[in-house]
Every structure is written in C-alpha cells, then in structure tokens.
Design a protein around this nucleic acid. Structure first.
Lengths: 388, 388
DNA sequence: CCGATTTGTTTATTGGTTGAATTATTTGAC
DNA sequence: GTCAAATAATTCAACCAATAAACAAATCGG
C-alpha cells in the first residue's frame, strides 16, 4: 500500500514504497541477504535496490555484514541485515496487578524488560500512569546507555481505547475516561516520543502476528484474564472496528437468560469462561478439581468462537492469557463445539493454538507495533532522523 | 492503494493510481466538475489533472459536458462527468425461484433488467446455468444495441463460493461443487467476458455500499431469505474471509441445545429467524398473526447481531431481503437485544436500517462490483480498450 | 593466469509530476 | 466598447525515480 486512497501520488511516494519493500525483504529473511537477492525477490532492478539500500544504511536501518558462506563462482555478496542499533521502541503495559516496560530493537530483540508487581486499583489512574512514567524513564535510560534511539512508545491497557488514545472504560481497573497520552506526555521518559495507546488484546494479537511461530495473516487472538478480550487480525493487519472497540468477545452471549454479567447483560461468555468463573467453580485450584469448570468454560468458549468463525471465516484461533497453559484441558470441548457449529467445518479445518509469547505478549506487541510502523514506513524515519 | 504490498512500484503505477484518483473524484461529485476543482480536491497539479483527464476522455471513461452555471469572472470551466456510454457491466443472479440479469452503465444507471421466474431446483445446476447464459445473451444484445462495451460480468448465487468461482455448497438450491465460471464461459452472451462469481449477500452488501443512501463504510448487510446470510463491509471494502466464506450469520448459535438446523447443529439463527421459521409459526400469513413469530425472530436476530457488533465494532446494520419490509415489526425486538447485550451500546449508538435496493440488491451489487473494478483501476481498462 | 560467473555501480534514457509561463475566455469597470 | 481582473486550461523546461545496459570488482575453476 503506497498511499491512502484519496491522496495523490508523487515520485517521492514511489521511493517511500520501494524503501519499505526492500526493508521488508531484508527483515523477513532469516539470514543476511544480498542486494542481488533482494532485487530478484522484489522485481526491482539491482541498480534501484542499491540506491535504496544506500539510503537505508545511511539512515541507520540496515547494516552491511560479512557475506554469508560462499556458494559458487562470482563476486561474493555483501550481507544486509536490520541494524541492531537502529531505531528501537518502548513497549509498556498497565494491568490490574503490574506495570511493565520493555525496550525492543529494530530486529525485534528484547533488550530490556522491567516489571513492577503491585495492585494498580487502589491508587487510581493518575498514580498508575505516574508509576508507569517512572518505569518508562528507567527503560529509556537503559536504551540511551545502549546508544539506541527511540522511535516511539506504545501502551497496552485492559480496556476500550478511543482513536485519540483516551481510555473510555477499563472495567477491571475501575477506570473511566482516562487521558493516558495526556498524562504520559509529561513523564520524563516519554517527553518527546510519539505515544500510542491500545487495547491489550489487540496488541497481544499483533505480538503473536510478528513473533508467533508462523502465525497466519488472519486469525483471532483470545486473551483470557479476568475479562476476556480478542484481537482480530485480518489479512495481516489489526482490525480495530469503527471506533476501535472490536474484539469484545467476552460479552458475546452464550446462554441467553443465563448468569448476569458485570456489564448488565445475561449469559455473557465472561461469566462462563473468565478466570473468576473458572476459579469460583473450582474452589481449591488443584488440577483434578479444575476439570469440570474447564469443561463448561471450554464449551462456552467454543460456542462464542464458532460464531467468530462463522462470521469472519477465520482459520486460526490463538489462545493466550490463562488459556494458553490450560489449552490441553480446553481443546476437546472447544473443538467439539467448533465442529458441531461451524458451517464450513467439514470443508476446511480450524486450527486451535496456544499463544507463544506468554504474559509479555501485550507489552511485546506494543513495542512491535512501534517497530512495525518504522519498518512499514522507513521513509518517515529517514526524514525524521535527518532533521534531528 | 497503489500496489499490493510486496510488489514493486514503477512510474506507471503512479499514473494508474492518479488516474483512479481523478476518476473517483469525478464519480463522487454530484454535478459536473472542472479540471481545476479536481486538482484542488486531490492535491495534484492542474497540469497533471489535465493530462490524466485527456487519457480518461480518450479511453471513453469521461465526457466533457456544458459547463455548470457561471459563478463569477473568469474563463468558464468545462464540466467533466462519467461517460454514460463508457464500459458497462452485466450483473446476474441465480436464486431459488428466479434468474435475473441486468446491464448497468459506468454512471451506475440500470439500462436493462431481465428477470425470469421459475423454480431452479428441479432441473439442476447445468440447466439453471444454461438458462442464465441465454438470459445473459439477451442482456448483452440490448447492451450492444445501445453501443455499450461490456467490461465484465458478475454472478450472485446463494451459497459458499471459493476464490476461483467454484460454488462449493448452495444448500437451498441443493447444489454442490458446481463450476459456474466453467459452465458460463461457453455461453454465447458471456464468451469473451471476465466472469466473477460471489455470494449473494456479499454482492448485495456491495450494492448497498454504492447505492445505499449514505451507507457508511463499515456495516453489515443481513440478507434474509430462506437462509440468512450477511455481507461484511469493513472500511469500504467487502471482507470475504480467509476462504471467502465470511458472513454465515444464519448458523450463529442463538439457543444452544435448541432446534436442529439443516446444517446439523442446534439452535442456529436460521431456525428462529429464517423465512420458513417465521411462516411456520405464523400459519396463515396475515399481518396480525405474524406478530408473535416476528417477536421471536427479532429477538434471535438481535442476539446474533449483538455478537457481530461486540466482535466487529460495526455501527450500522442494514437489513435486506424479507427483513427490509418487516423492519417496523422487528426493530424493537432487535434493538432491545442490542442495547442489552452490546458492551459499548451506551457509548455510541448502533443504527439499524432497511436496505434501499430491494430484491434487485444482489444483481445490482454484482454489476456494481464490475463497475467498481473499472473505476478503481481505470488504467487496466484503458490498456485493454487500447488493445481491442 | 585466464575465462566464467556473480555482485554491485555507473550512465544514459524514459515516464511522470511539478511549477512557471502562456493562452483562452469570461465579467465588470470606465 | 475597450481594458483590466479573474479564472480555466495548456505548454514547456526542470526534476525525480526507475530502467536497461554497460562496466568494474571479486571470486572460482581449470
């Protein structure tokens, strides 16, 4: 995608697109890759690729490495790879019982990781965001020490986030209408960085898209915590919805007329498959006693996921949060419902997978979102880097 | 969108993009519009716009009209508008009890419309497609008489269609694995035209997107017939799903453990809000006696639509097929469920609307899909027209 | 040591947009 | 009735980016 529809295209947009194309080709290659290979893979000329690579190297996004092992006759290739000292990202997360921040470099490697366990509910939003600001400042200092320039910061929160970053509701934190970007803009660690705020499940889904061992480019990520959220990835891009509130699978009805939910409705998934529901039914949480509640949780999840698959024709479901370790006990129940209720189940299978990133998924996804924005539009970074 | 991500961009793609940009600007304007206005609106130079318009006029996509009423001093503008004699499209539909074809010109006007009522089930797929071929031939003759070149044909069918146009299942026709494009390619009226096949609800949704009085660019179109399908439009584009089978809302569970559906599952929406379900409960179809079944149909619909809104954060639902005329009796029941079950209902309203196109929606949408493809990529038509 | 081979760079050409100058056509003022 | 102002559209030189083809660099195999 070169330009948004509705915007004119000039020659510079061509260059911007092709810079991104070359960068992506290098990023997607496991090993260092030569200019000639990039040219062959993209369809651009070797001359053009050389010129583009020059810009990317000058801008600190690519580095030239020792050539890969020789393979035959001819001049040896110069290896290209993402610059480990290129623009890095600050990924942050606020959740009910912890604050976290991490620094991820352009190659996707986690350079630093800071976590502060503490219940965030008593002190309120302002205190939590102030605490996060301090954590971010520490992370930033570590990045500075490594000589890493920061391209931006992203924050994952368990709630509904508007397009401008305003947190409209975070039920499990008890927050409402919190201006997170406004409060963070003055934090010492974040003062001059572009900050984005997004829903925790959305960002975790992005994290899986990037890091997940061969995640397909359309899937649904289900994040099971106290609440249940989902991140919907369609054709390799997060689908946020008209107002940014997509993925509220926790409030899909699975038993009309069933238990009352915190949201006021009856029979929401959250009341049958949320963490509290499972623990409530289990009593003492030994593995044996958790079998029965997991059966009803799995069935409820399967019911809701069947609706997702029927509506969206998704072929992969990734379970994260508490569901990832529980998947062996949930799988049969979920798959029974999927097979039974998905119209196309007999035409093509639906894959059910556990998330690979674990509890860091949202924070990693937040950082990845920033890294991805640089990788997707290197021209913007180059002109920004030129101005600094 | 200039090029698919992953493809290189050359100067010719710039031209293709800007041709589409100019054409869209003219198409979206209610009145004839001048080159200067297009330039101002798009951000392109007047010189560039002139050059692009020259190509579009030469290719038969635009025509120059008398200027709009004068407004002040200065040379009067030449009015530009879509050419009514430009490339037209053949829209076709096969449904349980009729065949239909229409010719729609570049401006979106329906030039011809042919419908043949007859139950298509007894004779089988080959006979139905042969009948459609004859109908298409008649439509094509009418287009030829008007001097309209045809850009392509699209066919709407009530079933699951694979990416290559193969009809995998059409439950209400009793079809399975029908190679519609293959059978139609040899029909006299369609011999040399590119043919696409798509699901009826998908195409009807596209029709509403174009024709619908101010349809927003993300909505769900629900097509109520014997079966219930949905077309999902996200950000102005049809979302088809990984395999093209999205929108199967008819088989979303609304009463787990409820009535057995034709698909084998229990409690599918179709069993509570499908045409047969409504008529079965109503007995004699007088308006008074239909109140009670509409109440349970509306509630079931609301339940399924609440899931759609919770998952996709859609703010508009368009009801078509039998639901359009029944909306006054359904509205309260649907809205009650939406208000009760949509997590974000109190933050932003969900609009419920009847379709404006009526029973022709799918056929119109089929034609519109072809017209849209020309409008979205005029460069392709120009080079094709040049070769002919 | 020399030809074959592959990588990367240089150079002239081409396609397409831009910006400024130019031409065309009208309104309004004197 | 003529001229100045205003707006629309076209022409033309300059520029930017990609291309193609020739060229330079570096290695292997004999």
């Amino acid at each position: 995608m070169l330009a948004l529809p509705g915007t004119p295209v000039r020659q510079s947009s061509v260059r911007a697109h092709n810079l991104a194309l070359v960068l992506r080709q290098v990023a997607d290659s496991a090993n260092p890759i030569s200019r000639a290979t990039v040219a062959a893979a993209t369809g651009l000329t070797r001359a053009t690729v050389s010129a583009l690579v020059d810009d990317l190297v000058a801008g600190g996004l690519l580095t030239e490495l020792d050539p890969p092992p020789r393979t035959g006759a001819g001049r040896p290739a110069a290896g290209l790879a993402l610059a480990p000292d290129g623009p890095a990202a600050l990924g942050c997360e606020i959740n009910v019982d912890y604050l976290a921040a991490c620094v991820v470099d352009l190659t996707g490697a986690v350079r630093h990781r800071l976590v502060e366990h503490a219940d965030q509910r008593p002190a309120g939003a302002a205190a939590a965001l102030a605490g996060l600001g301090r954590l971010a400042a520490r992370a930033r200092a570590l990045a500075d020490a490594d000589g890493l320039p920061l391209a931006g910061a992203a924050l994952a929160v368990p709630g509904l986030v508007a397009a401008d970053g305003l947190i409209r509701v975070a039920p499990n934190l008890g927050w409402q209408d919190v201006d997170a970007p406004g409060l963070l803009r003055h934090a010492p660690g974040l003062a001059d960085l572009p900050i984005t705020v997004d829903n925790e499940a959305n960002l975790a889904a992005l994290g899986e898209l990037r890091a997940g061992g061969g995640a397909p480019d359309s899937f649904v990520y289900v994040s099971g915590e106290i609440g249940i959220g989902a991140g919907i990835v369609l054709d390799g891009a997060l689908y946020r919805g008209v107002r940014g509130w997509s993925g509220e699978i926790g409030h899909v009805t699975v038993h009309p007329g069933g238990r009352v939910c915190r949201c006021g409705a009856h029979g929401c998934l959250e009341q049958y498959a949320g963490m509290e529901a499972i623990l409530r039914e289990a009593g003492v949480p030994s593995l044996d006693q958790i079998q029965a509640p997991l059966s009803s949780a799995g069935t409820a999840l399967g019911l809701a996921l069947a609706a997702v698959v029927n509506l969206l024709d998704i072929d992969t479901i990734v379970l994260g949060g508490i569901y990832a370790p529980l998947l062996p006990w949930l799988r049969d129940h979920i798959e029974t419902e999927l097979h039974h209720r998905v119209l196309t189940a007999h035409l093509a299978p639906v894959t059910l997978r556990a998330a690979v990133l674990g509890p860091d998924a949202a924070m990693r996804g937040a950082a990845d979102a920033v890294i991805r924005s640089v990788r997707d539009d290197p021209a913007a970074w180059l002109s920004r880097a030129g101005r600094l």
